[in-house]
């Protein structure tokens, strides 16, 4: 099982390292998204108060949707998803492998996105790097856990590009609330770590519930 997961992650990352298609496009999209916010919201050199947390998470959600769509589009174009599902391994392993691949791609994007938001919106995001990392990574896992399942299911659907965000955004409302609130709590002049801990705990329980639910439904949803 673990070996199968590792093989799938390695396959995805090898394809990605060779083409760099998703990493570059997602990153560029995330950066231009943040710039749009900067043009729209920064007035006379003054960023909106408390805006940085929301902007960071919107950029993560948008670029995450793009990365999810592309990852499975690549499988579809080369007809490899069927091969993946035919492989003599448990379906949950396929799901977890895909999930890990997407999370690592998004973390890579966030490594550049976070300093950029911090810089453009004059937000002290990097004062508590470990807590910020905890909030961002647990939120990213939750977002990708739902996203991977839906993107995989949508591979065969018509108008999948439109349907992915349509499905994903209502479902990930709690991730967005907890992620934005947790990040905003870190931006306060007097950081109350108790509040941050609460949001991280909520995000982690969300991750657990949604990964469990996805593992449970991946099999019936991907069979037809």
């Amino acid at each position: 099982m673990l070996h199968a997961i590792w093989l799938i992650v390695r396959k995805d990352l090898t394809v990605e390292v060779r083409s760099r298609e998703i990493a570059y496009t997602t990153l560029f999209f995330a950066v231009s998204c943040v710039l749009q916010f900067a043009f729209a919201l920064v007035k006379e050199g003054k960023p909106p108060e408390d805006g940085a947390a929301g902007i960071l998470w919107i950029a993560i959600a948008f670029s995450g949707t793009l990365a999810l769509g592309r990852t499975f589009e690549r499988e579809r174009q080369s007809e490899t998803l069927r091969a993946l599902l035919l492989a003599p391994t448990a379906r949950p392993a396929v799901y977890l492998g895909k999930l890990l691949g997407i999370v690592s791609l998004l973390v890579l994007t966030e490594l550049i996105l976070t300093p950029l938001v911090s810089f453009l919106f004059q937000a002290p995001l990097l004062v508590h790097p470990i807590w910020l990392f905890a909030v961002v990574i647990s939120g990213t896992i939750g977002f990708s856990a739902v996203g991977t399942l839906f993107a995989a299911m949508l591979v065969r659907a018509r108008s999948r590009d439109v349907l992915l965000p349509v499905l994903l955004y209502p479902i990930t409302v709690p991730v967005m609330i907890a992620g934005v609130r947790g990040t905003a709590a870190l931006l306060q002049p007097e950081v109350d770590l108790g509040i941050v801990r609460f949001w991280v705990a909520l995000l982690l329980s969300f991750d657990v519930v949604f990964i469990t639910l996805a593992l449970w439904t991946f099999e019936p949803l991907m069979t037809d």
Binding site: R156, A157, L163, L221
Partner: peptide, 11 residues
């Protein structure tokens, strides 16, 4: 969603 959307929607 086209074909298969019944399961997708159920999920």
């Amino acid at each position: 969603g086209g074909p298969g959307s019944d399961k997708l929607a159920a999920g």
